[in-house]
Design a protein around this nucleic acid. Structure first.
Lengths: 191, 191
DNA sequence: CAGCATACGGAAGGGTCATTCCGCTTGTCA
DNA sequence: TGACAAGCGGAATGACCCTTCCGTATGCTG
């Protein structure tokens, strides 16, 4: 789509870009989407101008991180879909596995729970995620272990709730996201 | 706790207080907690100063509304706890009933999903809510219809997720909070 | 190593709101 | 009805943050 050939970044610029991404990941994970650009810049050891050189807006930075994260989740779930064994166990364990890297990250919980724009940006990973989730569910359904009317959207709703439960847990509420997920997913079981 | 006898409000002040509460309820329901004081004042047909005369901060206004809402929820669940019939059906139906008035209100969804302070303010309603929920659950457990290890906190986690699902649904996500709740609560059933 | 495009830092700009302040208005009570 | 406390409106204040701008520094190429 770019009209000009992108010449490679200068060495220092490439280095800084990585530092900014790392710093942003840390800041967003701790503080949530409210993390400030100035704080991210400080953590990265650069000026705010440099952050903006690499990411035109805060949203773009969030989107870049979200995109990478969803791709990672898709990897996890695709790997799960290839696993052998009891279909229900594999399904539930895989969803739990994919939730773990999200649960510790405040911003990702916010995004999963409800930040549509950033999810759009991660559309590609989202599609893979949906497909792999569907595969896992299909196997469980064929094995008669999951309600026939269960859909990927049901799982997405449960994961949306999960994001909030994990956030509340981090904020100190007496909640346990693993227990929440186990229970909610159990609602999808065949009786 | 007040050191002076509170003399009754002047008639116009009492009227304005109600207008502010109504306007705030509407604005928060539509816009969520981001609703602006100036907008609330405009809806109420008063100046912002008047809003602040009655509620010292925005948080206090939110807390007043939350308090009333939780008291209302407690009423619903207490009424449910008095209902006759199949214990599981009563439990599930009552939770759904109590969720309905929340689902249509953006700010309440945000609060339930994760706005600790406002919930503190509603501590009284919260306690009644917990007690009544516990009663409903006990009945279902004694009837052998609910997992013995299910706790009120499990229901609270599910409701926390519900707030977010309802918010996402309002924001246009393909989710259905009633379906979500039915499924998640089903995870609490005895097998 | 000179020249220059690329990249950097961080102060300044500007938008969005919550909250305050004070001169004016209006119930209330004698 | 007069006097005054209670209440009101809304402009001004100030905090918070994203984003822009531009003078300076630095990697790269010949």
């Amino acid at each position: 789509m770019s009209t000009t050939v992108d010449r490679p970044l200068r060495a220092d610029a490439r280095r800084n870009r990585e530092k900014v991404l790392d710093a942003a990941r840390g800041a967003f994970a701790e503080t949530g989407l409210h993390a400030q650009i100035e704080d991210i810049a400080r953590r990265a050891g650069v000026g705010v101008g440099t952050v903006y050189r690499h990411f035109p807006t805060k949203d773009a930075l969030v989107a870049a991180l979200a995109e990478a994260h969803f791709a990672h989740l898709a990897d996890i779930v695709e790997a799960g879909a290839r696993r052998e064994g009891d279909a229900w166990e594999v399904f539930a364990a895989t969803i739990l596995d994919s939730a773990a890297p999200t649960a510790g990250d405040a911003a990702l919980c916010e995004i999963i729970a409800g930040h549509p724009q950033a999810i759009e940006a991660a559309a590609l990973g989202q599609e893979r995620l949906k497909a792999a989730t569907g595969a896992l569910m299909g196997a469980a359904q064929r094995a008669g272990q999951m309600r026939d009317d269960a859909t990927v959207q049901d799982v997405q709703a449960i994961m949306c709730g999960f994001g909030q439960v994990a956030a509340a847990q981090r904020a100190g509420a007496q909640m346990d996201w693993q227990r929440y997920l186990t229970i909610a997913l159990d609602g999808l079981r065949a009786r």
